[in-house]
């Protein structure tokens, strides 16, 4: 247990001390919220926030998994950190567990920050029970997104490659998965592709507790989609996983 905690603490410090992670995970989400509120907020700011916050959360959760988490693993691999960990007697399961705990912790902190900013500055009102209900949705979404990120890390040749692949997947979804642009305003093909994207599923999972307050029939389908994508990505990531960078 002490071993697990020390490992978790070290990985957590590595995340928090990396400047680009700090920017993308904590400054950028708030920035996104502020810009969108200023540009599209209109008169009903709290109402707009109700639609916007789940979208921004979904965007950030995607970015976190596909970029931050993927890049961190790729860098560990490239620098030979994974190799050194492999040479120690620590069980692989302990490493994986610590990595997941740290990733989830950082992503949940980031989600909490976005919600807190929306509630404090933009009049978003949410009862505590909704926040509590949002937590498992966020956790599940983060796990899926981190699993997707590990697939990216498994196929990306280097950390630069991981960032590029992650960004393509993330920026693509940002606009066509009903996250920060309503999908109804999109061309027909996007309206048929969008709902199959992981980002769409994430947004739909966090929407009921944070916006609509009611479970739509779609909710179950999106929950299932998230579980299936997450499990498939985790298996694929495990299969693709390498301790050492290709030379």
């Amino acid at each position: 247990m002490q071993r697990f905690l020390t490992l978790t603490k070290a990985m957590f410090l590595v995340y928090l001390r990396e400047r680009s992670t700090l920017f993308w995970n904590f400054a950028f989400p708030v920035f996104l919220l502020v810009i969108y509120a200023a540009v599209f907020g209109g008169d009903d700011l709290p109402g707009f926030m109700g639609w916007m916050v789940p979208g921004v959360l979904a965007v950030n959760i995607l970015a976190f998994g596909l970029i931050s988490s993927a890049t961190m693993m790729t860098e560990f691999r490239q620098k030979g950190v994974l190799r050194r960990l492999q040479a120690s007697p620590v069980p692989t399961l302990t490493l994986v567990g610590a990595y997941i705990v740290v990733n989830v912790a950082v992503a949940v902190l980031q989600a909490a920050l976005v919600v807190a900013v929306a509630m404090t500055f933009y009049g978003l009102q949410l009862p505590a029970v909704n926040l509590l209900l949002a937590l498992p949705m966020v956790l599940l979404s983060v796990l899926m997104s981190v699993a997707l990120g590990q697939v990216v890390s498994g196929v990306a040749p280097g950390s630069g490659g991981a960032v590029a692949i992650g960004q393509i997947l993330y920026f693509g979804q940002m606009f066509i998965a009903d996250l920060i642009m309503p999908i109804e305003q999109m061309p027909g093909w996007i309206q048929s592709v969008g709902p199959w994207l992981p980002g769409y599923a994430i947004a739909q999972l966090v929407r009921p507790p944070l916006q609509t307050g009611a479970l739509s029939p779609e909710f179950g389908a999106n929950l299932l989609l998230t579980l299936v994508y997450g499990a498939a990505a985790a298996l694929l990531a495990a299969w693709l996983f390498k301790w050492e960078a290709r030379s």
Binding site: A10, V14, E18, K79, G80, V81, R83, R84, A87, S88
Partner: peptide
């Protein structure tokens, strides 16, 4: 074993 690999693998931010 105590191990020092040829490619030094330290975490820069610790």
């Amino acid at each position: 074993l105590g191990v020092q690999l040829q490619k030094t693998a330290l975490l820069d931010d610790l």
